[in-house]
Design a binder for these strands. Structure first.
Length: 977
DNA sequence: ACAGAAGCTTA
DNA sequence: GTAAGCTTCTGTT
């Protein structure tokens, strides 16, 4: 140890008692072992290590040790037999925890010190002296006044529970004397807890005043006769011997023959797996999670250590009173066979949680409505204590970019939840908008009180569909971290399982609880009132229920993640995407109103012209948009050939059918198809998009759903920006309205043939892998292999058919579907497929394997381990079964591609920041990412984007086929793509 | 006012 | 043949 080093000495014994008394009584592990004090101790240690390391201004320890009392008998008992004689035996449920706390210290990789015949305080005093002599500083982690005598220029104290530093000035402030006079002060006052006699009638105030007057105890006793007050003078003279023995008792020994050197206390980084093994054994789930996060450990992969608590009468003297707990962590079996034999497997624990959740009924009338700041502060303190809190925001709109905050709810334990109304209005929603309901905390005050909790790295926030709440909160300047999302947990666990991942459904499924329907509190349709108009009592039941249910769902779902081996899918592909998408949604994209308006006019004109032609041809003014009326005219009255019926018995008027008729030379069907295209473009795009331009940002903010598809793809809505036209020239014009900000460019980067590349890799097809490695035209190569024709000079029709087959494979091909796609007889399509499988037998094997796996397990997996369930794959209905087989084949490919672009998106922001680029990701369209970049940075941005995307599978998966990304920049989306 | 069907847009 | 979302029409609530 040298100058500049900093030693932390933790008064472990002091903490055992403080933690025990500070925490709710009788906190027990599932097997009944009491662990309240262990929990408090571990949380304190972890917080101390984290904060001490993290704070810039704080003190960073270089050396660290935790010190315990060895037994209750020390040299002081020889000096004064009554010392600590009135101490009662420790509470029954604290006894087994002494050993566990020492074990906890070792699990934290920290030295654990004790010495026979001495108190912890003496060891602390001795090490303080040694550190001081070595030139280092010391912080004593304790708030015990017995240790204050050690405070000096290089020695401070710290009370982590009150987050308070104690220095020389603090000692003077509290006791009225400087630290070096604390011994004399204690000698005078004594200590009833430790049975140190002191001088009767002298308390801290008098003692301080006397010491101020006489200097020190010796001088005081010598000149006691000078004291004016009769009683005080006599007491001091009569009890001088008690004061002297007291001084001996309270003076800490700095000469303990310690065996460990200061250099043995050098602080090492936490050993994640070791610590997590212990924490799991103690069932400290929230601390386990925090430690896993901070140490970068996959907690799911670590099993609980075997921590055996045995009562043994060893030579190791009693800690306090009776009973000794020798405790061992068996390193050899730490990976868990013992745990399994006891039945405490992740699956077992998950099942237990699920059982308990259904049994614990929900009472929506038990919630609290928080209407003042002090009460909110109590709830926030409770959340801090719990380490986890479920929350939910209530607003006036489903669109988080437009929503106004009405209030938020918190849940700190099942059944313990509150609603905090902020923006509820009274009276009619007239021009004045109604006044705020009385007794609501001002939004600014509530949020500035809530913000530190939401951003506290040691408190896990839980939400259902967090992205919504995150966007709302971020708009109010509040971030949320760390977090879990119950919707995403359900999605990772149960994608494809019937029922979806909405809260109402999940509450019924897992908790057996029917949630209050939103329309019951806010009405619907014409009777709809915004949430801000809902009376506070109703709002409280509804909103707090959401938080309560969310917390309970988390308790059920989170353990299932580890039980099913899906922790890394959740933590790497799902959870990190939430803030990425929240940011994209908030950025939005610029859309040119004028371009859309002009297009809308053109389309209206074109459609009107066609309408007139159509009316002329059929002789009456029907509603062309009505397939029913149209079918009746075309196939009924006009008697066109080739009519077919839909499953509801209506005449089909599908585009495919009308196209076929047009090809036979009929004029009318062609015009109808054209009319439909124009009206479709007008209504869905040019007319609807301007309505999505945000009044303040002037941009269009789509909403991405993370848990809407079964395969892992995202979906986009309000508006859907993943189906903006591109195939026809007319449609493409709509893309020209998506523009870059002034001085910026849009960059579009898309994966080339990503699903076929994934297929080539997972099905291991040599010809396809070679073609991709060569950068060849994959459809031409396929055609060449199948039809034995050279790539050079290949007719475009041959390539087109091969292309259709390649896509068909991705979709789980059927002769029926391929025949439809290529407008060829089913037999011919079947022959193509046969030919394809002969040339690429690996693909047939791959498809057969996938079907067999899905049938066996009820799900398929992507390359990254995402599971997609097909509960109907064993259906006795052949067409249902075939559909599920095709879907499962497609899901592995589509899902793997979706996972890859997710990984790219998660890394993109960091990569751009690292490269010092200001480009920002705006949109995702399944295999394409759209960015906005300052004009001058475009050239530098494209390679960064390309690198991130092309390497997105790494290092988790090394594909045998290269990924290729095409990227381009332009002023609008049409030209960039 | 709502739900489902039909139809059309995307990857 | 896979995966989505939006608009319109139509019949029911």
């Amino acid at each position: 140890m040298k100058k500049g080093d900093h030693l932390f000495l933790v008064d472990g014994s002091g903490y055992i008692f403080r933690a025990y008394h500070a925490l709710p009584p009788l906190t027990r592990k599932s097997d009944g072992l009491p662990i309240g004090a262990v929990s408090g101790f571990c949380n304190m240690l972890w917080k101390l290590l984290r904060e001490a390391r993290n704070t810039d201004a704080g003190i960073t320890p270089t050396h660290f040790a935790v010190i315990f009392d060895y037994s209750s008998k020390t040299f002081r008992n020889d000096l004064y037999p009554e010392y600590k004689a009135n101490r009662s035996a420790p509470p029954e449920d604290l006894i087994p925890q002494f050993g566990l706390i020492r074990e906890a210290t070792r699990a934290f990789n920290l030295p654990c010190l004790e010495m026979e015949g001495f108190e912890a305080d003496d060891l602390i005093a001795t090490y303080c002296r040694l550190a001081c002599e070595a030139g280092g500083d010391t912080t004593i982690v304790s708030s015990d006044k017995d240790l204050m005598q050690l405070v000096g220029p290089t020695v401070g104290m710290y009370d982590p529970m009150r987050d308070r530093q104690i220095g020389i000035l603090d000692v003077i402030e509290k006791w009225g004397v400087p630290p070096e006079k604390m011994i004399d002060l204690q000698a005078l006052t004594g200590d009833s807890v430790d049975n140190v006699p002191g001088i009767p009638g002298i308390g801290p105030k008098t003692a301080a005043q006397l010491l101020e007057q006489f200097g020190d105890l010796d001088a005081l006793l010598e000149r006691a006769s000078e004291i004016k007050q009769n009683k005080r003078r006599e007491s001091i003279i009569d009890n001088a011997d008690k004061a002297l023995i007291s001084r001996q008792l309270v003076t800490l020994r700095t000469d303990v023959p310690v065996t460990e050197a200061l250099d043995d206390f050098v602080l090492h980084p936490a050993d994640g797996p070791k610590l997590i093994g212990f924490l799991k054994a103690m069932e400290f789930s929230s601390l386990t999670r925090r430690v896993a996060e901070a140490t970068g450990t996959e907690a799911g992969e670590i099993e609980a250590a075997t921590v055996a608590v045995e009562r043994a009468d060893t030579a190791h003297g009693p800690d306090v009173g009776s009973g000794v707990q020798a405790l061992e962590v068996d390193e050899k079996t730490a990976t868990g066979t013992a745990a399994k034999e006891e039945g405490f497997t992740p699956s077992f624990l998950a099942a237990k949680r699920a059982e308990a959740a259904v049994a614990d009924k929900i009472d929506v009338d038990a919630y609290h409505c928080v209407r003042d700041l002090p009460t909110l502060e109590v709830w926030i303190a409770e959340a801090r204590e719990a380490g986890v809190v479920a929350f939910d925001v209530e607003t006036t709109s489903l669109d988080p970019m437009q929503a106004e905050l009405c209030g938020f709810s918190l849940a700190t334990a099942p059944g313990r939840a509150c609603y905090v109304p902020l923006g509820h209005k009274s009276g009619q929603d007239d021009l004045l908008g109604g006044g705020l309901v009385d007794g609501q905390i001002p939004i600014r005050d509530a949020l500035s009180t809530l913000k530190p909790l939401m951003e506290d790295s040691s408190v896990l926030k839980i939400a259902q569909n967090l992205k919504y709440d995150l966007v709302v909160m971020q708009r109010h300047g509040v971030d949320v971290t760390p977090y879990d999302d119950t919707m995403l947990l359900s999605y990772v666990l149960d994608a494809g399982v019937t029922g979806g991942h909405g809260m109402d459904f999940l509450a019924d499924k897992w908790l057996g609880h029917k949630t209050i329907p939103f329309k019951d509190v806010a009405g619907s349709g014409k009777s709809f009132i915004g949430f801000h108009q809902v009376p506070l009592d109703k709002a409280t039941c509804y909103a707090a229920e959401d938080a309560d249910v969310t917390l309970r769902l988390w308790q059920v779902l989170k353990p299932r993640l580890a039980a099913k081996g899906l922790v890394s899918v959740y933590e790497r592909l799902e959870r990190p995407l939430v803030p990425v998408l929240a940011a994209m949604e908030q950025r939005g994209i610029s859309v040119d109103r004028q371009i859309l308006s002009r297009l809308s006019g053109d389309l209206a004109q074109g459609a009107a012209r066609l309408e007139e032609d159509i009316y002329a041809l059929i002789g009456e003014r029907i509603n062309i948009g009505s397939p029913r009326q149209l079918g009746d005219i075309l196939f009924g009255r006009m008697g066109l050939p080739g009519g077919s019926k839909t499953k509801t018995g209506q005449w089909s008027t599908s585009a495919q059918l009308l196209e076929d008729l047009a090809a036979e030379g009929h004029e009318l069907p062609r015009k109808i198809v054209d009319w439909r295209q124009l009206t479709k473009l007008k209504s869905t795009y040019t007319d609807a998009l301007p309505g999505f331009i945000h009044p303040e940002t002037g941009r269009v903010h789509t909403s991405y759903a993370l848990a809407a598809t079964t395969t892992g793809r995202l979906s986009s809505s309000d508006p859907n920006l993943q189906n903006i036209p591109i195939r026809t020239a007319e449609g493409r014009k709509i893309r020209t309205a998506f523009i870059a900000e002034k001085g910026h460019k849009l960059i579009s980067a898309d994966y080339s043939q990503i699903e076929l590349r994934v297929l080539a890799d997972v099905a291991d097809i040599p010809q396809l892998k070679q073609a991709f490695a060569d950068g060849a035209d994959i459809h031409a190569i396929t055609a060449s292999e199948m039809f034995n024709v050279p790539v050079e000079g290949m007719p475009s029709e041959v390539r087109r058919r091969a292309k259709a087959i390649n896509f068909g494979i991705i979709y789980g091909i059927s002769a029926f579907g391929l025949a439809n796609q290529l407008s060829i007889p089913r037999e011919e399509a079947g022959a193509y497929i046969k030919q394809y499988f002969e040339r690429f037998p690996g693909i047939r094997d791959y498809m057969d394997e996938t079907k067999a796996f899905a049938r066996e397990n009820g799900y398929v997996e992507t390359v990254f381990g995402r599971r997609i369930h097909y509960p109907e794959i064993r259906s006795s209905n052949p067409s249902v079964r075939a559909f599920n087989e095709r879907a499962s084949i497609n899901a592995r490919l589509q899902g793997t591609a979706a996972d890859i672009i997710r990984r790219a998106m998660i890394r993109m922001e960091g990569a751009l920041a690292e490269a010092g680029l200001s480009a920002r990701m705006l949109l995702q369209v399944h295999d394409e990412l759209i960015f906005e970049s300052v004009e001058g940075e475009v050239e530098a941005t494209i390679p960064v984007v390309r690198t991130v995307m092309e390497n997105a599978a790494m290092p988790a998966v090394s594909l045998s086929v290269p990924l290729q990304v095409d990227a381009r920049a332009a002023d609008n989306w049409d030209e960039a793509h």
